[in-house]
Computed example of a mutant assay.
Amino acid sequence: MSTFSDPAAVQDAKLIKVLTYNVHSCIGTDRRLDPQRVADVIAASGADIIALQELDVGRRRTGGIDQAHLIATLLKMEAHFHPALHVEEEKYGDAILTALPTKLMRAGPLPSVGETRGAIWLQVIANGLQFNVLNTHLGLRGIDRSRQVATLLGGEWIGSPEFQAAPAIICGDLNAIPLSPAYRMLARQFRDVQLLAGGKPRPTYPSRLPVLRIDHVFVSEGLGVRRVAALADPLARRASDHLPLLAEIEPSAALIRAGMRSAASA
């Protein structure tokens, strides 16, 4: 029987499940509006940290519901929402959901032409370790995506001392395949979890017959990957036009030891 004196048991205890999911305003491929169905897909994944894109908050087209708050409530989590689009009382944007302790570090717009894009960055404490978690939804034009990633890599976001001080998880619908400039800009500093996990990377869009790999999770040095899956059961194929991407992330033994030393000295 393993105990926490066993390094393998410690590693299992530190496993973090991260999900990125474009929920398409909770309107499924059957054209039905159903936030409960989206919450059910997320709950089945067992994810600890959920990065959501394309959420409606107070919009007439989806019944005026605060989708971020509703989904978080159904999952017994807290939601940090950033409206990339905010017109009068109607909002549309991205959120990070978790039941773990968090601190909002930054939420703001990215340089955009046409539909406004944004990002949200939290510090999250998981199993005694601190992580930076960033969620974003990039634009449809390649030139916009490159400018948006350049902004994210700059001194107000990823390049800041606070971001650099802890291991990082970058999530989102990047609208960018691996051959694109925006993807390659991120891949120079972070590692794609689908490549780290081995095996054939799985596309996530469109959900009924996925052919494009545009939803991504990246991690910094010190973080490994146990398993990655594009969740493609019948419910997930109906709930949104994107499939959710789940990554089981594990910190290195050195990172765990550093976290234990910090906790002991606190």
Rank of each mutant, 00 (worst) to 15 (best):
A150S: 14
A150R: 15
G154L: 06
G155Y: 05
I158A: 08
S160R: 10
S160L: 08
S160D: 12
P161V: 12
E162V: 15
Q164R: 15
A165R: 08
A166C: 11
P167W: 12
A168Q: 14
A168S: 14
I169Q: 02
I169A: 05
C171R: 03
L174G: 10
A176Y: 07
A182E: 01
A182W: 03
A182Y: 00
Y183R: 06
Q189F: 02
D192Q: 07
Q194W: 08
L195H: 11
L196K: 03
A197Y: 00
G198S: 08
G199D: 07
G199V: 09
K200P: 02
K200W: 07
K200H: 06
R202N: 10
P203Y: 08
L212M: 12
F218M: 02
S220Q: 02
E221W: 02
G224E: 01
G224I: 00
R226T: 09
A229L: 12
L231W: 06
L235N: 12
R238D: 12
R238V: 15
S240H: 07
S240Y: 09
P244G: 08
P244C: 13
L245M: 07
L245A: 06
L246P: 10
L246N: 04
L246Q: 01
A247L: 05
E248S: 13
I249L: 10
P251L: 09
A253I: 13
A253K: 13
A253H: 12
A253N: 08
